[in-house]
Design a protein around this nucleic acid. Structure first.
Lengths: 204, 204, 204, 204
DNA sequence: GATGAATGAGTGTTCATTCAT
DNA sequence: CATGAATGAACACTCATTCAT
């Protein structure tokens, strides 16, 4: 233990909040800001949503946001990245084996469930991702997450003896995008469950 | 209307111009502005594209744009509205009869063709529509155009004796959205033709 | 003459201000802004002087400044560059010959005269140049102007048979800097004329 | 005061510290802050250097600085004032007698030596003083220190029977300023020693 | 009809300073 | 004595919009 570090630990005794207390404050604030950002970015758009608006919604001062995020872009990336982890968690583990029909159906069911239960979240999330300016920022991350899913599906179609498995895989991806988008835009009337069943029946 | 003819009408300034000549000038200017706007809004975004940029691309002064459009928003709405007419023109006339299978396939082929041939245009167009701020402005118009198409398809599926024709219709709409979107984002690699064939084979 | 250019010239007939009128407005405004900037940058400092302050002093809006200068830095460079031209004009033409004693004395007299007659200007100017942040921006320009002067003096001292002409030249430059600086800081009490005479007597 | 001794005093926290121990801590902290400030203010500038940066370099928290200095301005004044004492220490004691030639030369040698050995320090110091905003704060102090030096030199020139001793004195001061400034701006190439010799030979 | 100088509210961002702990 | 989260006023810069000509 060096002299410097001794001094430091002694000094910390003097600081009134413990490191843990500070961490809790920071975690809480960070989450608040990200939540406010998520809601506003989705409702309006990236460019239309100002840092001022986010601060107001979060109930804090403008300046404080910069205590937690280097700049607006970093905040956006943080919000979107956090959303990706949800996606990633849902991808089934296959250990190199192609998915069975049941596994794929289960994956689709999970996806649709998340769509409905975390509706608010995904609506916001979806409309953020749709904006070209954001795409630039997260293109690579998105690709890194999407490619494995597409491959998983291509493997599935191949194991089913389908003629053009890659085309089928990309089509399935496109269909999911389209369904999500339509559901987001009009959740009241869009017959999500019926459509899920048609999807499974015709495309799986 | 060509530059030559514009010149002519301008040169006739000495002798008083007819009302029609004025109108021609106005129409030509308006079209120029809208074309410049379409290109820039798509390449960048609505918020990132300034009136100055549009004026420069259109080869006119900033102020003149306000002579033709009340404000930026009105310009956007005009551009998007014009784009809708292309959509509308593609919808087949059925005189109350449901579409035949061949007619529907033909409609799908037309749609996909437009997607590829006017790719630049639709890419721009698509990215404009995707922005929430714009959606607010044109939601009603969009609905007015989309509903007839969905109804047409529902009628088709009903005539084919499908159990849940409305769900099928909305799903087809969703699939077309998803395919368009994926094609727009990655036109190089997206197997559009293969997917169109799969779609027709499995879903029509 | 192309169609485009014909259109343009016809259109210009319609614009109410002639190109020359616009140029006059621009020249005048630009000068006003630069004058306001010069005064404020000198009285305070580059960092302390805000664009708002300059706009207020110039009696215009903040935004208009950016109609004339790309950014704050460009404004600074413009102001300083303009000042350099005064310097450059004072350097005597020698056609390769070293200066005579009379010529050098005349140059010094001119320099000192400018210091006193354009006192306000040089005070501002000097204190701008003295600031490290500005130096970075104009270092190259400054060197390009100063080196010829130093060489001229080195040539002079060499022609006088002085042992270390370059050292003498740089010292003369340093002395002039020191005198200017002291005069600027305390023009009331600094005995400029006496000192000029001492300088000429001892050092030329 | 070394880190070791700081630790000791900190460790004695359990037993009440003497007033002296508190003072030592305070003195040590104050010096640390001022040193950090000096380095940063010089490397960057007053406006560019933030309290945060100083705190980080000093290894303490932002808030603590305000425990030792009322505000940023007070910190600057403290740093500059301390620097002046170095100057003051170099002024030779004359007990009312004018300096001898040897004493003056010795003083000049000392000044030049300090310029080169504590180069880093003076460079920083010089660039701080050069900023108008700082000048406002310390003008009076500067005068209080400079006047005695000028008087000393005036006395010297008078004792040498020079016609206008005050002008000579102020000129010598100006020359020293000019030399320092030029050396600071270009220490690699500026022939400091040669120039010092020329100065002594011609002006002493 | 056409121009572009001019405005002013807005943006993202920084930072000296305060204060609860 | 010490911390760092928090504030708010300021900054450089942008841009839709207006208007005298």
């Amino acid at each position: 233990m060096t002299d410097r570090s001794i001094i430091k630990s002694l000094q910390q005794k003097m600081s009134p909040r413990t490191e843990q207390q500070y961490n809790e404050i920071r975690e809480h604030r960070k989450a608040t800001i990200m939540q406010a950002g998520l809601e506003l970015f989705a409702q309006y758009s990236i460019e239309t949503t100002s840092i001022s608006m986010i601060a107001k919604r979060a109930g804090i001062s403008k300046g404080l946001i910069y205590n937690y995020f280097d700049n607006k872009e970093a905040l956006i990336v943080a919000i979107v990245t956090e959303g990706f982890e949800e996606f990633t968690r849902m991808i089934p583990e296959t250990h190199g084996q192609p998915l069975s029909k049941e596994q794929l159906i289960h994956y689709l069911n999970t996806t649709f469930d998340v769509l409905t239960t975390d509706f608010q979240y995904w609506k916001l999330y979806f409309s953020i991702v749709m904006q070209p300016a954001v795409m630039k920022l997260i293109e690579d991350q998105l690709m890194a997450i999407m490619m494995p899913v597409v491959m998983l599906m291509a493997d599935y179609y191949e194991s089913q003896g389908v003629a053009n498995p890659m085309a089928h895989a990309r089509m399935l991806g496109a269909i999911l995008d389209g369904i999500s988008l339509n559901y987001m835009l009009d959740p009241e009337n869009f017959p999500l469950t019926d459509i899920k069943n048609i999807l499974i029946q015709k495309f799986i």
